[in-house]
Design a protein around this nucleic acid. Structure first.
Length: 336
DNA sequence: AGTTCCGCCTGCATGC
DNA sequence: TGCATGCAGGCGGAAC
């Protein structure tokens, strides 16, 4: 479930189930789901089993689950002082790649491409005071471009919260994990919905790039969370051709584009993300509805919602770009 | 350092 | 019908 809105739908769906939950059991069915983990499956399982998840956090298309230090596995764990463990903070990191899903539940029929299964114990009790039933998290991924990993956490460079943590933000804004980011996410820029996103910094970075503006939108080191769908949708909304050189776009144009990016991402989020098939679903296996509002992505041959001209789909960087040939004319040769 | 290309995978639609 | 080809919402690393 690739781009920001789809990943946020998953993060928000996981949040109530995993916050404060303890990992009871880890099962790795396919080691290819651990390509970002520095070690074998046994190491992944060992470092995760028994740990308590503090929250569900997201930056761009990356999610992570900070692990508390209270329950390190192993015989010496009980004697380990909290401060010592806290010197090596860790998180479970998840990236969905092109086709990853995280499904929540119990008694769910086994999905075809199950890669990792986590059993977690939520912290609460039911009305009778009994412990809540354990919950199963299934990491399902057809193409195995997604992955999970245990990674160390570093302080954020700007000192701001590392990403969006949902309701926990208001409950525990000063927790140490808020201002730490997994090492493998540290090179990813903040996303445009992050309150700490620096618009001027984005404008400055974009204006240093000679490549086309779509390439810049897709560069997760400049701005994160945008993929092929929302890049095309945002460029249509801003009436920009994808090959317009970023360094020749006026600042006001870039500001306008950033506004459109935010509007598109927010609208997609309201609709539960974009789903074309059963591949892109929330933690309960349900589809989002934003595909019904797409102006250009996958709409080749359909009329442009603004001017009625048929939308075209063109090869671009070994992928495709969709645009309105009238609203988004190709830049003149000397501007390319 | 910025930019571009390629490989990593499986499944599906298309065309011959 | 079978088979080859191309394409799919992403990322990181190599090569220029």
């Amino acid at each position: 479930m690739p781009e920001l809105p789809e990943v946020e739908v998953v993060r928000a769906g996981l949040e109530p189930a995993v916050t404060g939950a303890r990992v009871l059991h880890v099962e790795v069915l396919d080691e290819r789901a651990l390509t970002r983990h520095d070690g074998p499956a046994e190491d992944f399982a060992h470092r995760l089993t028994g740990r308590t998840i503090a929250a569900a956090v997201r930056r761009g298309k990356f999610m992570w689950f900070p692990l508390l230090d209270d329950a390190q596995p192993g015989p010496a764990a009980d004697a380990q002082p909290r401060a010592a463990a806290d010197a090596h903070p860790e998180a479970l990191v998840a990236h969905l790649g092109m086709s990853g899903q995280i499904l929540l539940g119990r008694d769910r029929p086994a999905a075809r491409h199950r890669r990792i299964v986590l059993d977690v114990q939520p912290p609460g009790t039911d009305r009778d005071g009994a412990a809540e039933a354990p919950v199963q998290l299934e990491f399902v991924d057809q193409r195995t471009f997604g992955s999970m990993a245990i990674d160390r956490m570093l302080p954020t460079l700007d000192g701001a919260p590392a990403g969006l943590a949902g309701a926990v933000d208001t409950l525990d804004p000063d927790a140490a994990w808020r201002r730490r980011i997994p090492f493998q996410v540290s090179h990813i820029a903040r996303d445009p919905l992050d309150p700490a996103f620096d618009d001027d910094r984005f404008l400055a970075a974009a204006r240093k790039r000679s490549s086309g503006i779509k390439r810049v939108l897709l560069d997760q080191g400049v701005v994160s969370g945008i993929g092929n769908i929302y890049a095309d949708e945002s460029l249509w909304a801003a009436k920009l051709h994808h090959d317009r050189p970023a360094d020749r776009l006026p600042r006001a144009t870039l500001r306008g584009l950033l506004d459109e990016v935010r509007a598109v991402l927010r609208r997609a989020l309201e609709d539960g993300g974009t789903s074309f098939d059963a591949q892109y679903v929330n933690v309960n296996g349900q589809s989002g509805y934003f595909s019904q509002r797409l102006a250009v992505y996958g709409q080749q041959g359909q009329p442009c919602p603004r001017c009625g001209t048929p939308i075209v789909r063109e090869p671009w960087m070994n992928r495709s770009s969709h645009r309105c040939p009238v609203c988004q004319p190709r830049p003149r040769a000397r501007l390319r």
